[in-house]
Simulated assay, not measured.
Amino acid sequence: MNEFPAGKNPGQDGGTNSGELLELAVRVAREAAATARRMRAEAIDDVETKSTATDVVTAADKAVERQVVEALRAMRPGDGILGEEYGSSEEPLPGAVRWILDPIDGTVNYLYGLPQYAVSLAAEVDGAVVAGVVVNAATGDEWTATLGGGAWRGDRRLSGSTPSGLGQSLVGTGFGYDARRREHQGRVLAGLITQVRDIRRFGAAALDLCAVAEGMLDGYYEKGLNPWDWAAGGLVATEAGVVVAGLNGAAPGAEMLVAASPAVFGPLHDALAALDAAGGA
């Protein structure tokens, strides 16, 4: 990733050039990841819950989001921001940029010290994500993409995997926090696991999508994702040639997101549809 020209912040004029937006996103996300790492090393305190007793949010989530919001507003005050903790959900004006932020994707991993949590930041224009970065804050690994510009891990362009079929596929998933939803998701998992090579559950949707883009997973599915969970990772996957969609022609979203290499997407989609993966609570 190129350094910023002296005396100029990329995108500070309010433009929508995807390359400039990505440069800004990378810088801000790297700084946010450093804050998350530092706070994890110092202490985990002020743990609260959100939707259920198992849905945790830490002081670091809030601090990291405030840092990113302040940085973006200082450099691009006219942009909108949709964040998990504080960002406004107001729809932006036509042609304007909206940033979609997950300050710490994988908060439970963060809480337990598992090295699978990320800062995810995407730039959206007129409903389309045009630039995105996912930084594994624990390891410093970084995935980037621009619309039409490909997906990258560092200097290596990503192109997904090429499994021979669903039966030879390693598939990732995630679970909701509501017990009723988990019960349904458990039944779906029990029906799917006999049809695939194996299942993995890493606990951070953005990183799961980047794993599919890189070929570390052949597919991934989950119900209940929010825009900040998959905006940047979804672009990385799509630009790597991965199919990202919902079930039965629906767009990816809260009802279901399925991401898989083209050879696997069809049979994985059909298996999930037959198991009513989008159903339940």
Rank of each mutant, 00 (worst) to 15 (best):
L24C: 06
L24A: 09
L24E: 05
L24N: 01
A25H: 10
A25P: 14
A25W: 05
A25V: 07
A25K: 10
A25G: 15
A25I: 09
V26T: 12
V26Q: 08
V26R: 08
V26L: 10
R27P: 02
R27H: 13
R27E: 15
R27C: 12
V28E: 01
V28P: 00
V28L: 07
V28N: 03
V28Y: 01
A29L: 09
A29D: 06
A29V: 05
A29S: 14
A29W: 03
A29N: 09
A29F: 05
R30C: 10
R30W: 10
E31S: 07
E31T: 03
E31P: 00
A32C: 05
A32I: 04
A32V: 02
A32P: 03
A33T: 02
A33R: 00
A33F: 01
A34V: 15
A34E: 15
A34D: 14
A34C: 03
T35I: 15
T35N: 13
T35V: 12
T35A: 13
A36W: 03
A36L: 02
R37C: 08
R37V: 09
R37H: 09
R37I: 06
R38A: 10
R38W: 09
R38K: 11
M39R: 11
M39T: 02
M39Y: 08
M39Q: 09
M39G: 02
R40H: 15
R40G: 11
R40V: 07
R40N: 09
A41M: 13
A41T: 11
A41V: 05
A41P: 01
E42C: 00
E42F: 00
A43R: 11
A43L: 06
A43W: 06
A43V: 05
A43P: 01
A43S: 12
I44G: 00
I44R: 00
I44C: 01
I44W: 00
D45I: 11
D45G: 11
D45T: 12
D45M: 04
D45H: 10
D45Y: 10
D46S: 08
D46H: 08
D46Y: 01
V47W: 04
V47Y: 01
V47G: 06
V47T: 08
V47H: 04
V47N: 09
E48Q: 13
E48F: 07
E48A: 12
E48L: 11
E48P: 01
T49N: 15
T49C: 15
T49I: 15
T49K: 10
T49R: 10
T49F: 07
T49L: 08
T49M: 08
T49Y: 10
K50A: 15
K50M: 14
K50V: 13
S51I: 04
S51P: 03
S51H: 04
S51D: 10
S51N: 07
S51E: 13
S51R: 05
T52P: 09
T52V: 12
T52Y: 07
A53V: 07
A53P: 06
A53D: 14
A53T: 14
A53M: 04
T54S: 15
T54R: 12
T54C: 02
